[in-house]
Design a protein around this nucleic acid. Structure first.
Ligand code: FES
Ligand code: FES
Lengths: 143, 143
DNA sequence: ATATTTTAAGACCTTTTTATCTTTTATTAA
DNA sequence: TTAATAAAAGATAAAAAGGTCTTAAAATAT
């Protein structure tokens, strides 16, 4: 459904949204251990997201990863977008050339509406919005 | 979303449902060229599906792959099931231990409807039912 | 200034997925 | 019964995804 890379990244970004701030930066190791994913692999993902300004980072003592207010106002889809790209949401599920209602593949009408809904949910809601629900105890990050 | 293997297999099985019969078996090469996927790779997939009785095959001249009436009455999900397995539809999209409405991950409610509906559509409709729509010109297999 | 901390960068390894090729076996038709 | 045909089986190879490690660079505190 999503690549492991995207899964780890969404988890990590939401962890940072809940736990970190400009004053409380968090190291890659701490994030990885908290969400239970391989540390060096996650570190790479966080570096990529930082380079693309989806999250923020600072080197040195007291440094680490964190989310600025600007970062938190990004839509959650931007995490997936910068790691997997959006092709998954654009292409035909069966790999046909164009996905459209005009020339639909056999499972187009079974799948397309929900593909779109999933994409819209991730595209319309900010990282902060998802984090709020975690803070409220409506949804959960770890086990 | 689905693996290439599953995509190819669904395409091929529906092609066979539309084009083949006990009297008109079709070689792996012809199927692969018709749906535009790599021949030897598809041949392996068809062999696997035949071994698992999702499709039928016969060796020798006039041999090839085809769908028996019994095959056609299988649900389309069985193609995916025998190639990718069903874990994709059962597991939490973010990889959390259990996917449930009780302890939902942050994107559970955004994604779960898509996962479930897609699974239900493929689980409730037979291969023949999808093939009928292709024959009627309601949906399409190639480009 | 210097030592320390932590990200950044990039090389490297492993596993899984995708793809190909060759040999064997079963079936049919002549 | 022999030649031709096409799947079955299995070995192999290439590419992508997943994961690790080492070194460099930046920031901080002493
Ligand atoms: S045409 Fe296949 S999903 Fe739209
Ligand atoms: S808990 Fe994550 S999708 Fe259900």
């Amino acid at each position: 459904m999503l690549s492991s890379a995207s899964k780890y990244a969404i988890n990590a970004v939401l962890y940072l949204a809940v736990e970190s701030s400009e004053d409380k930066k968090i190291g890659a190791k701490e994030v990885a251990e908290a969400i239970g994913v391989p540390t060096p692999f996650l570190a790479k993902l966080l570096q990529n997201l930082a380079k693309k300004n989806v999250i923020s980072s600072l080197k040195g003592p007291k440094g680490g990863f964190f989310l600025s207010e600007e970062n938190k106002s990004l839509k959650l889809i931007s995490v997936v977008e910068h790691i997997d790209g959006l092709s998954k949401f654009e292409e035909c599920v069966l790999g046909l050339k164009n996905c459209s209602n005009d020339k639909p593949c056999p499972i187009h009408f079974s799948v397309q509406p929900f593909k779109n809904t999933m994409f819209d949910e991730l595209s319309n809601n900010t990282i902060e919005a998802f984090a709020v629900k975690v803070r409220n105890g409506e949804t959960f990050l770890h086990y």
